[in-house]
């Protein structure tokens, strides 16, 4: 049986990781490669690096960083942030990324999913979806960190992304992101019901129990988390032994 994956997410700005992490006994906690190696050693199944640099120089720095990550890490990693063209995808593939994650660009130009998948394979394309459930119960896809609404509905967009060639869906509920109150498991379960590609749950984890819930009741294939790892509340290894106790298949 394929194991449920635990994926730490690292935000990178101008080539340096940002956020907490001062608990980790590393020479340089801002070094994305060292931090990634630390997570890999502690049992992370994959890593996600998100480039949050706004500038062109930041992007170039990020590409060089992706090369260093590829040189130094022996588990798969995904890169995301600011990918808006086939050329961006090609540049990151050449730098050694195993997958890229696209979000706003896929909404603005959905043919981008087809193009990248046709060229480099579905396994290379993660489509990230941020959505917010309105009072009418409808999940509307948002962009720009949830600040802008689109006319797309979550389930329809996820199915479209799959049929266009996405290899995985990374779904974040903007109702839950940052609240640490758990995931909308029924929504994840419905996504799993409607799609045949793997689903990564993101945003909302406050406890081991939350993660266990989304991997079982929510039927998610993987859980992505940032703050619970970065702030040292729990290590990846500790989380996985807890999940194992709950009979969840992890590596």
């Amino acid at each position: 049986m394929v194991a449920k994956r635990i994926i730490p997410c690292l935000d990178v700005k101008d080539g340096r990781t940002v956020k907490g992490v001062n608990f980790v006994d590393l020479r340089d906690v801002g070094d994305a490669v060292e931090l990634g190696q630390y997570y890999a050693r502690s049992g992370a199944d994959e890593l996600v690096y998100l480039d949050i640099s706004a500038s062109k120089e930041g992007r170039a720095t990020f590409t060089r960083l992706v090369e260093r990550i590829s040189d130094g890490i022996n588990i798969p990693f995904t890169v995301g942030g600011g990918i808006s063209s086939l050329e961006d995808a090609a540049r990151l593939l050449d730098a050694g990324a195993d997958k890229i994650s696209i979000n706003s660009a896929a909404i603005a130009n959905s043919a981008l999913i087809d193009q990248i998948a046709a060229r480099y394979g579905s396994q290379f394309v993660v489509v990230a979806i941020d959505a917010r459930q309105g009072e009418d119960g409808i999940w509307r896809v948002t962009t720009h960190g949830g600040s802008r609404s689109t006319d797309k509905e979550l389930f329809a967009w996820a199915s479209e992304a799959q049929s266009r060639g996405a290899g995985e869906i990374l779904f974040t509920s903007m109702n839950h992101d940052g609240t640490r109150s758990g995931y909308p498991c029924d929504t994840f379960a419905r996504l799993a019901e409607e799609l045949h590609i793997p689903i990564i749950a993101s945003g909302g984890a406050g406890s081991v129990e939350d993660i266990a819930q989304v991997l079982t009741a929510g039927r998610a294939d993987a859980a992505l988390a940032a703050s619970i790892f970065h702030f040292g509340e729990i290590t990846v290894g500790e989380l996985k032994s807890e999940l194992k106790k709950l009979d969840i298949c992890v590596r």
Binding site: Q123, P198, R251
Partner: peptide
């Protein structure tokens, strides 16, 4: 062939 428990692609760590 995808099923409820077996996603396709087969992606991730398996024994």
């Amino acid at each position: 062939v995808p099923s409820a428990d077996e996603k396709v692609p087969h992606m991730g760590w398996n024994s």
